[in-house]
Amino acid sequence: MSQPLTPSELAAYRLRQRSRSRALALVLVALVVLFFAITIVKLKQAAASHHAQALAAPQQPTVRAGL
């Protein structure tokens, strides 16, 4: 059976655990920022492509109702 940790081992263990949690939190925040930025870029690209397609499409003659 494993022995309980001594106070100094426990302190070192808690320190490692805390530093790992902080690093993980940083990574998660960075990923949120990255995914947000990617989404904005993708939306911009989609809008620009839609706009370009609309400009390239041949102009349809408009028919006025009632004339």
């Binding site: 494993s2 022995q3 309980p4 940790l5 081992e9 426990l10 263990y13 490692r16 655990q17 530093s19 790992r20 902080r22 690093a23 993980l24």
Partner: peptide
Amino acid sequence: ISTAPAASEADW
């Protein structure tokens, strides 16, 4: 907490 986590709780 026993001695086992020492190996599984690696530093970042």
